[in-house]
Amino acid sequence: MNAKVEKAGASNALDVVKLVLAGALLVAGLVAYYYFADWNGWARLGMLAVGVIAAAAVGAFTGVGRTVREYITESQFELRKVVWPTMDETLRTTLVIVVVVIILSLLLGLIDLLLKWAVLDHLLKIGR
């Protein structure tokens, strides 16, 4: 767990300007993509990609962007701690699950047949 002290107060005014600029770049990329509809599809896609990348680059240097980068870095660090199962363990676990599912489906099918036999074939015919 992280025991970092968080800064008190609202976002910096410069961060707000950067976020607005990032939003404007993203919107500009989208507008360019639809405005130049008669262009080649790859050129339009390239303009959209430039808008998205530029918006991400500007947004990365804000307080929110630093927080996201820190979160991704810490997530990657935690993922390195995970002990992944080997191929043999995965296959054995999968086989156990398949066998259990087959056994349970057979048991439930047998219970269904017994209940059908008891209710439909015997109980409902008693009053006739």
Rank of each mutant, 00 (worst) to 15 (best):
A22P: 09
A22W: 13
A22Q: 10
G23R: 03
G23W: 01
A24N: 04
L25W: 00
V27I: 12
A28P: 01
G29S: 04
G29Q: 07
L30F: 15
V31I: 12
V31K: 06
V31D: 08
A32I: 10
Y34W: 06
Y34H: 05
Y34G: 08
Y35P: 04
Y35S: 09
Y35C: 01
G41L: 06
G41F: 08
W42L: 10
A43Q: 01
A43L: 10
M47G: 11
M47N: 13
M47A: 05
A49G: 15
V50L: 11
V50G: 04
V50M: 11
V52W: 12
I53F: 08
A54T: 00
A54Y: 08
A54G: 13
A55T: 08
A55C: 10
A55N: 04
A56I: 10
A56D: 04
A56S: 06
A56C: 15
A56W: 08
A57K: 08
A57Q: 14
F61R: 01
T62P: 13
G63E: 10
G63I: 00
V64S: 09
V64C: 10
V64P: 01
G65F: 10
G65P: 07
R66A: 12
R66N: 12
R66V: 04
T67W: 13
T67E: 14
V68M: 08
V68C: 02
R69T: 07
E70M: 13
Y71R: 11
T73I: 15
E74V: 06
E74I: 10
S75M: 14
Q76A: 12
F77V: 11
F77W: 14
E78W: 11
K81E: 13
V82H: 09
V82R: 07
V82S: 06
V82W: 13
V82F: 06
V83E: 12
V83Q: 11
V83F: 12
W84L: 07
T86S: 09
T86D: 14
T86L: 05
M87T: 01
D88V: 00
E89H: 00
L91W: 09
L91E: 00
L91N: 09
L91A: 08
L91Q: 08
L91K: 11
I97K: 14
I97S: 07
V98Y: 13
V98N: 14
V98E: 15
V99P: 14
V100Y: 14
V101T: 14
I102R: 04
I102E: 01
I103H: 09
L104C: 09
L104Y: 06
S105K: 06
S105G: 07
L106H: 02
L108A: 01
L108E: 06
L108H: 10
G109T: 07
G109R: 10
L110V: 09
L110N: 11
I111G: 09
I111P: 03
I111V: 14
I111F: 01
I111Y: 02
I111T: 05
I111N: 02
I111D: 05
D112G: 12
D112S: 13
L115W: 07
L115C: 05
L115F: 07
L115M: 08
K116E: 04
W117A: 02
A118V: 01
A118T: 02
A118F: 10
A118Q: 04
V119L: 01
H122N: 11
